[in-house]
């Protein structure tokens, strides 16, 4: 699903240049649930942003679902993001004046799905995350965990090839975090490919594979026995 070869990324700040990714190589198969671990500043978000086509690499190869990702203009990047990727952010990033259902329907709008179908799908995915009754509520009326579940429903709505989540539990208490992880595991059980950035070992242990980043390189990449979140909720 994802093939990355010798990926480099530096941030230029004035005269200085900060080399954040120093040759990353890894592949992700369909249906994997991967945790990207590492201490703060190790380049996890940078890697995820490049995978998400929100940022571009300086050199290296990136192939997503057999499509080489390079020389993207804004419009093309937007289309690829819309077609291939779903995002979940630490701070949820719901649009505050749109209801839960409207938020979930937004990527479908950019896919030019007709209005009626959008609404149906939005409800379907809200149901999947257990928030069907909250469809008409604004984000401000939801708890943190509920917000993140709406965000996950939104990411799923576009039916992406890969789900990218940057610290999805970073703003949540541990009980809520496990609820979210439980949801993520179930989505993964259904066959979805998911990459999660986290620095919390307990969250990483709930994935099927851990990729450890340090100083811009992968120092460890191992398959693990998944710990089910279900038992903690």
């Amino acid at each position: 699903m994802i093939q990355i070869k010798d990926l480099h990324k530096s941030y230029k700040m004035g005269k200085n240049s900060l080399h954040v990714l120093k040759g990353i190589n890894f592949n992700v198969e369909e249906g994997e649930l991967v945790a990207i671990m590492g201490s703060s500043g190790s380049g996890k978000s940078t890697l995820l942003n490049i995978l998400g086509m929100l940022d571009s690499s300086d050199s290296g190869e990136y192939i997503l679902d057999n499509v080489p990702i390079k020389d993207l203009n804004e419009t093309k990047a937007a289309r690829y993001r819309n077609k291939f990727l779903g995002f979940v952010f630490q701070s949820f990033n719901l649009i505050n004046y749109k209801s839960a259902a409207e938020n979930v329907a937004l990527p479908l709008y950019y896919q030019k799905v007709p209005r009626k179908e959008r609404q149906e799908k939005a409800l379907k995915y809200l149901e999947q995350v257990g928030l069907k009754e909250w469809a008409g509520h604004l984000p401000s009326e939801l708890s943190g965990g509920q917000k993140q579940r709406v965000a996950i429903a939104r990411a799923l709505a576009a039916e992406p090839k890969v789900l990218l989540a940057d610290e999805p539990t970073g703003a949540l208490d541990s009980k809520t975090s496990y609820e979210v992880m439980d949801l993520i595991q179930k989505i993964n059980d259904a066959g979805n490919t998911i990459l999660i950035v986290t620095h919390e070992p307990d969250i990483a242990d709930m994935c099927k594979r851990i990729v450890h980043l340090k100083d811009g390189v992968i120092i460890e990449d191992k398959k693990i026995e998944q710990i089910r979140a279900e038992q903690y909720v």
Partner: peptide, 14 residues
């Protein structure tokens, strides 16, 4: 921020 979210979700510049 909202515009950034929209773009992440696939909003084209136009």
């Amino acid at each position: 921020k909202e515009i950034g979210v929209r773009k992440a979700l696939g909003a084209e510049p136009w």
